[in-house]
Amino acid sequence: MFARAKARGSGGLSAQAKACGSFRIAILLVLTGMVLLAPTGSVAWATDDAVTAEQQIGVTGAAPPGGLLEPILFYAVAMTTVIAALGVCIAKNIVRMAVWLFIALGSVAMLYFLLAADFLGAIQLIVYVGGTLILLIFGVMLTSKSPWVRFEPPKLELIGAAVVCGALLVALCVVLYSAVWPETEGVVPGVSVADLGRRLLTTYLVPFEVAGVLLMIVMVGAAHLARQEK
């Protein structure tokens, strides 16, 4: 009895040590990843003068394109995205699905950072992860009777869906690889937020306003739908 308790205690300790280690590794990995992923940010400790000096020399980004860094980051992020997307498909529990979706949305934000769309990545994190996902989890919590509620589709349907989606994926890949894209050369500079804002309020003013009106309508509609029945 005593020996068992002792063994369990030591197991707990080693698990703790493992938790410490993995925590540090996770922090380091994430920090490194985020650092490398911020393509338009200037190098650390940069001053105004330094930035101009940098521009004179002709380098605009921290991670030079064409190096080994970009492919490594891309493959890591892409793997995470794909695994999370498949996790959403496979997960049976609805909350697990939501957590997989959280990972997928986060890594899509990382893809945006990699594509030099910093603002879009941040907006993806705020609106999707901080807003839409919370809303979904809220819906899950308000509408499920037990934490482990499942709705199992028949097996035949699963196989059918898998076949259809697999065929779709194959078709998309064939199209992708047979398509000829116009070549672009050289370093593509990231777009600044100011450009984005200016374009949004000039060329895209009408869609912008329409989206505002739509959001207003949706707000009223959602409040009406979810109101308390008196």
Partner: peptide, 18 residues
């Protein structure tokens, strides 16, 4: 494309509205 197909698969197989 992978994201798209897994989204379609999820829509086809899940019974839960959410």
């Amino acid at each position: 494309a992978v994201l798209f197909c897994s989204g379609i698969f999820t829509m086809m197989t899940k019974r839960n509205a959410i």
